[in-house]
Amino acid sequence: MSNVWQICRRELKSYFVSPRGYLVLAAFLLLQGIVFYLIVQAFSREGAPVGSIMQIFLGRNIFFWIFVLLILPVITMGLIAEERRSGTVELLLTAPVTEAQVIGGKYLAAYLYYVSLWVPTLLYPLLLSSYAKLDPWPIAAGYLYLLCIGAPFVALGLWASSLSRSQIVAAMLTFALMFLFFIIPVFLEEQARAEWLRNGLVYINLWNPAGDFGKGIVDSRLIVYCLTSTLFLLFLSARSLEIRKAA
């Protein structure tokens, strides 16, 4: 466990000692700020349901997805690829640590960084609450939704990063796969004729639960889906490190 923590800590530091970490954070906040502003503006009429502002902000608008799909590859692209390019992977994997610990530490760091991107947005509901009375639970559920969907995406990015020594390739691959993850269920659900297929796709749809969570309905299907796909992707990442050893 100590090893996981050491690796995680170094990785987190590397996010925050380089301008990259702050640049991503700043850009993300700027864009989110604009989106938040637009949503608030759309709702700033008499009798509008102020409570649903956060619901829309957290996952129920297309900008949310564009930003998440663009920013996540930037967070994860360097995790393994950069170690391989610079040769430090040779240091990392000649220290007494297992591949799983390396993956665990890296994942934890990237995930915490992803979470940290959202922390400043906690100010938004605070801001809103000075104008209207807000129910905190739907907002909490909305943030839970963010935590859920971030988990497999970060794992996906980590896996992509373990496949190449080029950060660009890793980023492109992550973006493409994330996009498919997101778009296929949404798109196919409308198209699918067979009922079993449609029912199956409901489970892996990431878009619809955003509405439920935003209303305060915590859908355990999403949590299970995100958790299992995360674990599976982490397993793949660890395997990818082990396979490199034999090659």
């Binding site: 050491q6 690796i7 170094r10 530091k13 590397s14 000692v17 040769g87 430090t88 240091l91 640590v97």
Partner: peptide, 18 residues
């Protein structure tokens, strides 16, 4: 190879703990 962004002492500390 080493992590360019780290300080010497910090790097050694990380490696020692690892």
């Amino acid at each position: 190879p080493s992590y360019g962004e780290m300080r010497v002492e910090e790097f050694l500390h990380y490696r020692a703990r690892l």
